[in-house]
Design a protein around this nucleic acid. Structure first.
Length: 433
DNA sequence: TCTGGGGTCCTAGGACCC
DNA sequence: TCTGGGGTCCTAGGACCC
């Protein structure tokens, strides 16, 4: 018996597991007295609000609001504020994902707080019951509350999880796999809330009277292809229940590695800028070596605040291709300094700088010749291995290039950082019994 | 005073070739 | 004066995501 593609497709079942208010939930686990209290988490540099507890949302604080604009309101309402603590969130994320692997071998870690699970072939179980058990186990083992959406495509699973999270009657789990009226969910979903439809596309679609997910589902394919490219077309088919976006189980090597930061205080001197570029480049090179890769292309940029008047703004960048791809910090630092000299202009208050490595290849995929100073086992490679080993054992920056600076006056502001509860034993809170 | 960071994918258009 | 056309490769930039 042969099956048509559509028959085969109808067997797919995806679950999206989404941690509720992830960063806020992480902070709350170690400060149980903050249960039911409003909490917000700030972005790097304490700039914007990037995570809010339900109580903070209820008070009307919008996502991505500038902290300084809401500071007074936050203080007046007794809202608790944290700088983002990625050591903590990364570790908690790992625990959540480890828990999920107990329930299916096929999962895709989509972001720090979301995973897609394939439950295809689990039909003999009561699926709703099964994912309820997943959610309860994650909460019990890690303390993190999650919402789950179940559907025949990833895009629909995303929509289902929104209902799971927002509508109390679903208690966190919404299953629309065999729902008799999936359109009833699409009809009340704004087209801009669909996975893959951002602000620009929402505006465009509205001009053509497409306002809801149901409108988009019923839109004309050639119209979508023309205005939203194949990416948009895939989304539309997914809304119709035809899977077009596969589960990506394997963690592929990153194709770009970026290290960029805003400065705590604006910097004006070449010396300070050069330190920051060196610092970012060192971190980028470390990440590159950690995934056992080399890079062929370097991009650096410097910029003033985008909120300044036009005449006070200056943005510039430089990109080069290396004759020989490398992961050697010293070579990369040398190039970055040369590039910075070409684009740096004195007389501006710089707010942000960064380094992006692209054209990345696995380190073993390149033909080395013996005249090359970076063949495997060369002095350069041995030096980098030693350096990474020491920094891994004794903490980041135990050994670093002198050019990355000692004082780091430009480093970011993190005034309200919580302790690294799960990754630094000496910072654990003292428990009195 | 203060406004995040790190990724992915797709396309248009230029350069180049025959 | 008239002034190819089609294929491929590369890159910058724009859209999206969390």
């Amino acid at each position: 018996m042969s099956s048509t593609p559509s028959e085969k497709n109808s067997d797919e079942i995806f679950a999206l597991v989404d941690c509720n208010n992830f960063y806020a939930s992480c902070e709350r686990i170690f400060r149980p007295e903050l249960e039911k209290k409003p909490i917000v988490i700030l972005s790097n540099n304490d700039g914007c609000i990037v995570s809010r507890s339900n109580e903070a949302k209820a008070l009307g604080i919008p996502m991505a609001a500038a902290f300084f604009e809401w500071k007074e309101f936050i203080e007046k309402n007794g809202i608790h504020v944290f700088s983002s603590n990625y050591a903590l969130y990364g570790d908690m994320s790992q625990r959540v994902m480890d828990t999920l692997t107990q329930f299916t071998p096929k999962l895709e870690i989509y972001s720090i707080d979301e995973a897609f699970l394939s439950l295809s072939g689990f039909d003999r179980l009561d699926l709703t019951e099964y994912v309820c058990k997943i959610a309860q186990t994650v909460k019990k083992w890690t303390g993190i509350p999650v919402s789950v959406g179940l559907a025949k495509t990833k895009t629909l699973a995303k929509i289902a999880s929104r209902f799971g999270k927002r509508k109390p009657e679903y208690a966190g789990v919404c299953n629309i796999v065999n729902h008799p009226d999936v359109d009833s969910f699409l009809k009340v979903t704004d087209v801009g809330k669909i996975w893959g439809i951002g602000r620009q596309n929402r505006e465009l679609l509205n001009k053509y009277d497409i306002y809801t997910a149901l409108d988009l589902k019923n839109a004309d394919d050639s119209f979508i292809r023309k205005h939203l490219t194949v990416v948009g077309l895939r989304t539309v088919w997914e809304l119709r229940g035809e899977p077009c976006i596969e589960l990506e189980e394997i963690n592929f090597l990153k194709k770009a590695i970026a290290c960029t930061r805003s400065f705590g205080k604006p910097i004006e001197t070449y010396a300070a800028m050069s330190e920051s570029i060196a610092f970012h480049m060192s971190r980028a090179a470390e990440k590159l070596r950690r995934q056992k890769s080399i890079a062929r292309s370097i991009h650096i940029f410097i910029m003033t605040s985008r909120f300044k008047e036009r005449e006070e703004r200056y943005n510039n960048s430089s990109t080069i291709s290396l004759p020989v791809p490398t992961a050697d910090s010293i070579t990369l630092l040398h190039c970055a300094h040369g590039m910075l000299r070409k684009i740096f202009k004195p007389g501006y208050k710089y707010k942000k700088a960064g380094v992006i490595l692209t054209d990345i290849l696995p380190e073993d995929q390149i033909q080395f010749d013996i005249f090359d100073s970076e063949y495997p086992g060369s002095q350069k490679q041995k030096l980098m291995k030693t350096l990474d080993g020491i920094n891994l054992q004794w903490g980041r920056n135990t050994i670093h290039s002198a050019s990355t600076g000692i004082n780091r006056l430009w480093k970011m502001k993190q005034a309200r950082l919580s302790p690294r509860y799960t990754t630094r034993w000496e910072e654990l809170p003292i428990v009195h019994s």
